[in-house]
Amino acid sequence: MLRILYKIVRTGIVSEAAPGPDEELRAGAPQIQAEILQLLGRALAIRQVDAGSCNGCELEIHALNNPYYNLEGLGIRFVASPRHADMLLVTGPVAKNMEHALRIAWEATPDPKLVVAVGDCGCTGGIFGESYASCGKVANVIPVDVAIPGCPPTPLAILQGILTAVASRSE
């Protein structure tokens, strides 16, 4: 136990409050929290759906929960059910074998809901395109509010995309 406490104390807080190696991220963080609080007045709940990705985007979405990006500290959290979600964060291309599951996840998400497509594949179908096995971009299957390009996009880009979606809902 002492070792754990010692390690925690010695590691300190590496989150955005402390200067991190990514200046742009540091500037963005307080603004994100204000936007969310102002518009939603509560935490933003996200259901992530991998609709056919290579898993590269998932690795970077996972990184949002690390102490540097500290997503939960910003009031944004990932939830287990689409019924608890305000937003679907979808990576693709949408595999034909996932088309049905994605549709029912979208239908299960209560209105008003947001959809953010993540990665080049989610935006355009990417390197996999459309084929006998792939529906291509997420927007070919469900309506998309914001699309974040990149292969994969960095955690910062994903964070900014989530913010953009939240901001666009107020219009």
Binding site: D50, G52, G56, L59, P93, I127, G129, S131, C151, P152
Partner: peptide, 29 residues
């Protein structure tokens, strides 16, 4: 099989010199 994207078939549209990009996305990790 849910994330079957037809990669083997997709390879037919790539040149031998360019196929590494698709191979590098078989499993992102």
């Amino acid at each position: 099989g849910y994330v079957h994207k037809g990669i083997d078939k997709r390879f037919e549209e790539f040149s031998v010199a360019e196929g590494h990009r698709l191979a590098g996305r078989v499993s992102g990790d």
